[in-house]
Simulated scan of single mutants.
Amino acid sequence: MRTETHRLTWQGIEIELTYKPEDYGGVIAHLEIKSINPDRAPLPITETGYRSHFHPVGTVEANEGTLVTQVTAWLDEAAKSKAWKKYIEDSRQLCLFD
């Protein structure tokens, strides 16, 4: 079973991608996304810094760009959410009240 490992830095967070293009009998592909520096830093697609994503084989390959560019686009899109913007704002200032 082939496994690819990629690293990228997104908004100052180092992220590791582990991708198995044919997992679980060749029907499902598996992508793990993990923030590694800072360890388990929240991302707009996961509050815990870890996300396991299953999808049909060939999904990544059918889309434009590399796995890294696709995950970066996913993070960029998710970062537009109100929840992520609030998280960033709260992180920048001392939050006395929730």
Rank of each mutant, 00 (worst) to 15 (best):
T72E: 09
K34T: 08
G12Q: 00
R40Y: 08
T72W: 01
I13K: 06
E61Y: 01
F54G: 09
V27N: 13
A73R: 14
Y50I: 10
T66P: 08
E64N: 13
P21E: 03
N37I: 09
L17I: 03
A62R: 12
V27Y: 13
T66E: 07
P44R: 01
A29W: 00
T69M: 05
L43E: 04
A41V: 10
A41S: 15
T46I: 00
W10P: 00
G25R: 13
L67W: 09
Y19L: 00
G26E: 12
I15Q: 03
N63L: 15
R51W: 11
H55W: 13
F54Q: 05
N37K: 12
G12L: 05
H55T: 02
T69I: 08
A41W: 04
Y24R: 05
D39R: 14
A41F: 13
H6Q: 14
I33F: 03
L67T: 04
T66Q: 09
P42K: 11
T5S: 14
D23N: 14
H6C: 13
T9H: 05
F54A: 12
S35Y: 05
T18M: 10
P56N: 00
A41C: 14
K20D: 07
P21F: 04
P42S: 15
A41N: 10
G58F: 08
P42R: 08
G65H: 11
E4S: 12
W74Y: 12
T5I: 14
T5R: 15
L43V: 01
R7K: 15
R40C: 12
V68Q: 10
G58C: 12
T59P: 00
T59F: 05
V68T: 04
Y24F: 15
G49T: 03
V60T: 01
K20F: 01
R51I: 02
H55Q: 10
L31S: 04
L31Q: 03
E47C: 12
I13Y: 08
A29G: 11
G25V: 12
Q70V: 07
L31I: 00
G58Q: 07
S35T: 08
T18I: 09
H6N: 15
